[in-house]
Design a binder for these strands. Structure first.
Length: 416
RNA sequence: GGAGAGGUGGCUGAGUGGUUUAAAGCAACGGUUUGCUAAACCGUCGUAGGGUUAAGGCUCUACCGGGGGUUCGAAUCCCCCCCUCUCCGCCA
């Protein structure tokens, strides 16, 4: 949700912002008109109520005033109806209004227009590199067929040493984040509409959501939803900021409309697992914390020995709630290129306004916090470990930092 | 799932139709007094929104879990829902 005062002060700027983001269906002029109309009607209603309140006080001693109030009642009720109808239309229109854009967000339509900022690590050169699906099948540690049998195509099993490797990586990451000052959570895996709306997943990504039938509940698409929603409606003490939260959770996405895209292996699936970083911070500091989260992502991949690149995500790939986003793309030798493993978004006050997450400081400063939402690791990173750790004999070397947790330093076919 | 008790400001807690303009206390903040700490005393002290103002401000409206209803008037009466607690049942 953008600041309505911005819209009132400079509608042309908001219009230009919508145009740049390709939000052609957002009728900025219409919203400005509705807003003005709503405020004027609201003023009317409030004046009528003031009159009614005065008259009804008089009723105690002057029974004649009752008739006057009675006739006012209908007028007030009618106008209140108009106000609430108009407000609903206004809110519906505003719900689709995308966030503002960071100054250095590149123009563009898709991931091909993202701007590479840097590369890090040595890319593995192999003549016949296998992709994670081939490796997983060969080692018997990824089972997509039974995933489809038991659930549906797009679900899968980690098995044996693969499940151990994935568990080790997720646990290690949670330990790393805890040491870096994050508070660890285990959150609900379902959330209500209000929470999904507040975090910006509704209405923009409605078709990605698994809705539980007959209930105001959906499976979470990310623990961002439950971690940011955690402070919904609260005023945070400025002294407590920044709040750094992390959680490991499953993430459910219908992936409607993405069939045929990146379908090989378990790169795009209905359920994956993620350790998430969330930061609530002072609005003046979100840029700094955004870069901090990126630094966390890079440090994790470096320690896992995975080469990667960082891109500045362009407008078309940013998503309506995002103000600015960095993606980290790991190099996948079997795939033969870089693929997204982490995304890191500064949402500024977009979620905080929708959810009502404010801060106040001892010196009287108050406002909406900024939120940062960033991946730490997902199953895709496990896939990257497989592809980057593959050996000519068909085995996979486990990153050194995980060996104490896996209990083995190499996965070979007989392990499974 | 069954039965019962509850939900009022940052917290505790009064309040059964109109001086409630939500008492009182605690906490917090400002001040006075004071060798220091403490105490005492005085004052301030909810949130959101609208209107107005150059601004400080002034003013109005709404809000006592949420929604609806009765009434000239609802924290208070009625209906529905949500949540919390206690007990019982079931259960990882």
């Amino acid at each position: 949700m953008i600041d309505l005062n911005l819209l009132r002060a400079d509608p042309a700027a908001i219009k230009e912002n919508c145009r740049r983001r390709g939000a052609d269906d957002v009728d900025v002029d219409g919203i400005v008109v509705m807003d003005a109309e709503w405020r004027s009607l609201l003023t009317d209603v409030q004046e009528l109520r003031a009159r009614r309140n005065m008259l009804s006080k008089a009723c105690k001693h002057d029974p004649d005033a009752r008739d006057a109030v009675r006739s006012l009642k209908q007028e007030i009720a009618d106008k209140e109806q108009c106000v609430s109808d108009l407000k609903r239309r206004l809110d519906d229109a505003l719900a689709w209004m995308p966030n503002l854009l960071g100054d250095d967000v590149p123009d563009g339509h898709g991931d091909e227009d993202n701007v590479e900022l840097r590369r890090c690590g040595d890319v593995l050169e192999l003549e016949h590199a296998l992709d994670h699906q081939a490796i997983g099948e060969h080692l018997g540690i990824i089972d997509t067929q039974r995933g489809a049998k038991v659930a549906q195509s797009g679900f899968y099993y980690w098995k044996g040493a693969g499940a151990q490797l994935a568990s080790a990586m997720f646990f290690w990451t949670q330990q790393q984040l805890t040491q870096m000052g994050f508070t660890l959570f285990i959150t609900p895996c379902a959330a209500k509409e209000e929470t999904l709306f507040g975090t910006g997943y509704l209405p923009f990504f409605a078709d990605q959501t698994y809705q539980l039938s007959g209930q105001d509940l959906a499976l979470i698409g990310t623990s961002e939803q439950t971690l940011v929603g955690y402070h919904g409606g609260e005023t945070l003490s400025h002294d407590a900021l920044p709040l750094k939260y992390a959680a490991y959770s499953p993430c459910f996405r219908t992936e409607a409309g993405s069939y045929g895209k990146e379908t090989r292996g378990i790169f795009r699936v209905h359920q994956f697992h993620k350790v998430e970083q969330i930061i609530f911070c002072d609005p003046d500091e979100s840029d700094e914390h955004h870069r901090f989260c990126l630094d966390v992502e890079e440090r994790l991949l470096q320690q896992l020995g995975i080469p990667y690149r960082v891109v500045n995500v362009c407008i078309g790939d940013l998503g309506a709630p995002g103000f600015k986003k960095y993606d980290v793309e790991a190099h996948f030798p079997g795939f033969g290129g870089y693929r997204e493993v982490c995304s890191n978004t500064n949402l500024i006050d977009f979620q905080a306004r929708r959810l009502g997450i404010r801060f106040s400081s001892a010196d009287g400063r108050k406002g909406f916090v900024h939120t940062i939402s960033a991946t730490a690791v997902t199953d895709r990173v496990v896939c990257a470990i497989l592809e980057n750790g593959q050996q000519s004999d068909g085995s996979v070397v486990v990153p050194e930092v995980l060996r104490a947790l896996t209990g083995f330093d190499r996965i070979t076919p007989q392990d499974s």
